[in-house]
Simulated assay, not measured.
Amino acid sequence: MKKDSCSQAGENNPKINLGAIKVNKSIPLILFLLVIFGVKIGTVSANTKDSPPPSIEETFSEAGFKTVEESVEEFENYFECDVELPRMTPSISFTHRFGRFYEDKQYNMNHSLAIRFVNKDIRENIYKIDIRPLKNKINFKDKLNLNGKEFTLQDGSKAIYFESHQFNFLVFEKNDLQYLLGIYRKVPNTVTPESLVKIANSIK
């Protein structure tokens, strides 16, 4: 049976800093990815000199990430709704993908689903999807007054493209959800704003 549209109480939304601190090539890949994705580094156990470094799977698991399928199911069960993911991905290679459902037990307004695509061999290949109910959405309309650009999707709805310090984003609304697609800015120009629009249009 198809679930209802996603909805949950939550009117006010704190501002979220979509930029990230600058990270150089000397930082290990695992730490680099965790910083880029805003994961609390203190939650990940440090390895000793005699122990091998944790794998990407182990590190993300300790930081609360699971499989995409498990995370989507948690989100759907919590909100009693269906979540459609884009059927397309950026035209760059990925070796791993992870998901995490975040339940905001303190303020009850920042519940979200985070999906992350990474490549263990090409650290610049980073792509992320953040999904939240419309009642908990973040307002990005001010981005149009800065460096943002508006696109029209196939269903007639509007999407906003904008750039931050670390990621280029496309935000749009579909099926009572707000989607935020982000591609790491150091990815070659093969992933354009138009590419993100095509990915958005692949959601049915």
Rank of each mutant, 00 (worst) to 15 (best):
G99W: 10
D4P: 02
F65W: 09
E74F: 09
V39N: 09
I183A: 11
R185S: 14
N24Q: 05
S164C: 04
N139D: 15
N77L: 12
E74D: 15
N77Q: 15
Y102W: 00
I16S: 08
F117V: 01
E194H: 10
A200Y: 04
I122M: 11
P28D: 14
S164H: 09
N189M: 04
M1L: 11
K25C: 02
L146R: 01
Y78P: 02
I92T: 04
S202F: 11
R185T: 12
E194R: 14
H111D: 15
N145P: 00
N189C: 00
G148I: 02
M109F: 10
Q8L: 12
P133R: 02
F169I: 05
E84Q: 14
F32G: 01
Y184M: 10
K2M: 10
F65L: 00
V187C: 01
S91C: 04
F60M: 09
A9T: 15
E150Q: 14
D176E: 11
I199H: 00
K186Y: 10
K174H: 15
L144G: 14
K2P: 14
G99N: 11
I160C: 05
T190H: 01
V197H: 12
K149D: 07
V23C: 07
S61A: 13
K186A: 03
I16G: 02
V197S: 08
S7Q: 09
F32E: 12
E69T: 13
L181E: 11
F101A: 02
V35S: 09
T95D: 01
K198H: 07
A159P: 04
N119I: 04
E150V: 03
E194Y: 11
K22S: 09
K198Y: 05
S91P: 06
Y161D: 13
A46M: 05
Y107I: 02
I36G: 02
A159V: 02
I30R: 08
I92L: 06
T43G: 07
F151L: 08
E84R: 04
A159W: 05
I92F: 01
A9R: 14
Y184T: 03
L33Y: 13
S61I: 00
P54K: 15
K128C: 08
S71F: 11
T59Q: 07
E124T: 11
T43M: 08
I115W: 01
E76T: 02
A114Y: 06
Y127C: 03
T95R: 00
S45I: 04
L31E: 14
S93K: 09
L170Y: 06
N12S: 13
F37L: 03
E173T: 09
V23M: 09
N12F: 08
E57K: 15
S157H: 12
I27Q: 09
I138G: 00
